[in-house]
Design a protein around this nucleic acid. Structure first.
Length: 758
DNA sequence: CAATATCGGGTTTTT
DNA sequence: CCCGATATTG
């Protein structure tokens, strides 16, 4: 039998073969951990003949889950095709059906929980048609709670309150406990807000994101038999990004492994960047105590980056104390030094990056480029610079499709039709489009609901009944709205999904509202809505029901629409985890930005910032450039503020870096000190003269045609002057062998090596 | 009740 | 600077 695992290195292979008992895999950046897991799953199915449905893999993002699912499917398909004597035989033995139960369960924590809860939640007194509240819904609800309690939003902004509530929830703390532990009146107030928030969520038969995990854990606590039965079903459990699990997720994992200890946790303590969301690095550090018979394996060979990038990144992260420590290595010895550039202004920084990106794209038509930054606010300047150079880019973060108002409105109609208790959906669309139900009327409904402990929908019906005796101005509008939603609820049951949505958009007058506006913006919204119908139709074709579709829409996140084909991607460091690019530009390496000022006061915070920097650096395969600006304007401030270079830059030894000039070329260290525009600018600045030198520079597209000949004298940023002794290949593949006095012969790609004729 | 004008406050990271 | 929340007008 041809061995599947021959395609792995020996460390990865060990991971795949260690199928029984607890296993902790410490996998460095770029060490092929996804590969190890996917092969492990395939190995379990193909070689160990484990039933696919008894395998579970949990990830944090939909993107990671999709990718893993795809890769496993491909592995299985390839192998089945290969065992040609029984092309269908094996599949049948595995019980491959169309119901999906024959596939391994690969999903995010959140979608796994939703799946289980849709089946089991009645045991907790919720209806199975529960709604999922996203941040938008949560904020509305929280504001309503503040009003209920007669509190102004001065004390806490809804956002602040929510984030503290969320943190508490993830620590497993409820309102009562928060109240008892409160040491100050603010926290006491927060506890009462929390309590009200919880009650109103429940009354709306709704769960917020945190509840999705919390409730399943609660359910398993309440019914150990149920936990036991799920644990027996999922006999082989994999957890990706284990370092990012929080307490609730940890408890869920413990519950699911109670019938066995077959857990394979994969993580990297150096990439733990979600402690602010309750993730605890402790989970990975104490794995061996939790599971006594645990085996620990390390993946330390890196397949992604060049040695110099790895060295630079390791140098930074090695300043952290809380880590198990590991040594990453690669066979990609040669590579261009890490570029370091300091611009005078943030605009200049963005222009520099855009220029470099453009050059990289010209040099290699297939190159992928990641432009990474700490805060979303930084994206604006970068976007502008990209547009100025007509570089196509994709922005991750910001507003995803399902976060757009028009899409959320349309979904709210569907949600309300499906679950009449859904308060957030009700409030969202009761007067969208305007149908004569104004603020005052809505307030009346809410008051009625509150007094009589009714849902908004029931309160609405009650008002209609009363209106028969005492006339009510908005009665007609309310009755129309009532009929509308009733009709939709009916249609939701009888019509096919795509039809239902088309009818919904039509009956509500929602689509017509935009069509009438006749503005380009409204046109875009119409298009989005039609796109939504397409998405619904596609889901229907894939056999997905309305609930499943709405669930998925609720759980999509910004990083999910990351498109592998986009060549240039702009995103935050957090979103970049798990991705890789040929070239990476890391912007804003300044004190206060990276490390961010909100987390640089204590050691734990600072270490997390350092890990963030590490994550960013290790996304790069061939080229890494770190940029900063000497001044920066903070949200519309009049003047610019002077910045200080990030301490992380100082943690990278000079031998791994090269200072870049504004043309993108490496500055020769001593000679060129004051002969570039950039350094003159710098001089003027430091001597107190404002520089008016503006960026009218022309970026020199590198390496067009073969300009290298044997015998050429060349200058290399790191090795100095050398002589070309051999040329091979052409274009991007062109490879030179160069002899440098004192370093010997080096092979290098001029495209990456920033060679200059000397 | 809806549409437009003005004001004030806010940015760390997100499933 | 950009957004949403409020005040004012039609």
């Amino acid at each position: 039998m041809s061995d599947l695992l021959d395609e792995l290195n020996s460390e990865q292979r060990a991971v795949a073969e260690q199928t029984e008992g607890p296993l902790l895999v410490l996998a460095g950046a770029g060490s092929g951990k996804t590969r190890a897991i996917t092969y492990r799953i395939a190995h379990l199915i193909m070689t160990r003949h484990v039933a696919p449905w008894s395998i579970l893999a949990v990830t944090f993002t939909n993107k990671a889950a999709d990718q893993m699912r795809e890769r496993v499917a491909r592995l299985l398909a390839d192998r089945r095709a290969q065992s040609s004597d029984s092309p269908s035989g094996e599949a049948e033995i595995q019980g491959a059906g169309v119901d999906g139960r024959a596939k391994p369960q690969i999903s995010t924590f959140h979608s796994l929980s939703v799946r289980l809860l849709r089946r089991e939640i009645e045991a907790l007194g919720y209806g199975r048609d529960f709604a999922i509240y996203d941040e938008d819904d949560q904020t509305r609800l929280l504001k309503a709670c503040l009003t209920d309690l007669g509190l102004s939003d001065k004390l806490f902004t809804p956002r602040q309150a929510l984030s503290r509530i969320s943190y508490a929830k993830n620590q497993g703390i409820g309102p009562e406990e928060m109240y008892e532990k409160a040491r100050d009146p603010d926290t006491e107030a927060l506890a009462s807000i929390f309590g009200r928030y919880r009650d109103r969520l429940r009354a709306a038969n709704a769960l917020d994101f945190d509840d999705l995990l919390l409730k399943i854990v609660e359910l398993f606590d309440k019914s150990p038999e149920l936990a036991e039965s799920y644990s027996r079903r999922f006999r082989y459990i994999h957890v990706d990004e284990y370092q990012d699990t929080n307490r609730v997720q940890y408890r869920l994992i413990r519950q699911l492994t109670r019938a066995h200890h077959n857990i394979c946790a994969v993580g990297d303590e150096d990439q733990s960047i979600y402690s602010w969301r309750g993730a605890s690095i402790e989970n990975i550090l104490r794995f061996e105590e939790d599971f006594r018979e645990a085996k620990v394996l390390r993946l330390e060979r890196n397949y992604r980056s060049t040695q110099v990038i790895l060295d630079g990144a390791s140098a930074v992260v090695s300043n952290n104390r809380a880590r198990k420590g590991k040594k990453l290595w690669t066979e990609r010895r040669s590579g261009r030094s890490i570029g370091v550039y300091q611009a005078g202004t943030a605009e200049g920084e963005a222009e520099f990056i855009a220029g470099e990106v453009s050059a990289a794209l010209q040099a290699d038509g297939y190159a992928s480029v990641g432009v990474l930054y700490r805060t979303n606010a930084q994206s604006r300047l970068l976007e502008e610079a990209m547009r100025a150079r007509r570089i196509g880019y994709r922005l991750v973060g910001g507003f995803s499709f399902y976060a757009r108002a028009e899409i959320r409105d349309a979904l709210a109609y569907a949600r309300l039709a499906f679950n009449l208790r859904d308060t957030a959906a009700f409030l969202r669309i009761i007067n969208t489009p305007p149908r004569g139900i104004g603020e005052t009327t809505v307030a009346q409904i809410q008051a009625l609901a509150r007094e009589n402990r009714l849902t908004l929908w029931e309160a609405l019906e009650e008002m209609l009944t009363r209106a028969k005796e005492a006339p009510l101005r908005a009665a007609r509008s309310l009755a129309n709205f009532h009929t509308l939603i009733r009709t939709l609820a009916e249609e939701g049951k009888s019509l096919r999904m795509a039809e239902f949505f088309r009818s919904l958009l039509d009956r509500t007058g929602y689509l017509a509202m935009f069509r009438d506006q006749n503005t380009p913006e409204a046109e875009g919204r119409v298009e989005n809505l039609l796109e939504l119908v397409n998405a619904v139709a596609a889901a229907e074709e894939a056999g997905e029901g309305l609930t499943a579709f709405l669930d998925r829409a609720a759980l999509v996140s910004d990083t999910d629409d990351y498109d592998e084909r986009a060549r240039v991607t702009l995103m935050t460091l957090h979103s970049a985890k798990g991705l890789e690019f040929d070239s990476v530009f890391l912007a804003g390496l300044e004190e206060g930005l990276l490390p961010h000022k909100m987390s640089m006061d204590d050691d734990a915070g600072l270490e997390e910032e350092r890990r963030l920097c590490y994550v960013g650096m290790t996304r790069a395969k061939d080229r890494l450039v770190l940029t900063s600006s000497a001044t920066r304007r903070f949200w519309g401030e009049e003047g610019r503020r002077n910045t200080r270079r990030s301490r992380f830059l100082g943690e990278i030894p000079d031998r791994f870096t090269e200072r870049l000039s504004s043309s993108g070329r490496a500055e020769t260290n001593w000679q060129g000190a004051f002969n570039s525009r950039e350094s003159i600018e710098q001089l003027l600045r430091t001597t107190g003269f404002g520089s008016r030198l503006q960026a009218g520079r022309t970026s020199t597209p590198p390496g067009s045609g073969s300009k290298w000949r044997r015998g050429n004298r060349v200058r290399h940023p790191k090795y100095g002057i050398g002589t070309v002794i051999a040329c091979e290949g052409e274009g991007e593949q062109e490879k030179l062998t160069i002899s440098f006095p004192g370093y010997g012969a080096k092979k290098m790609l001029p495209h990456f090596a920033a060679l200059e004729k000397a």
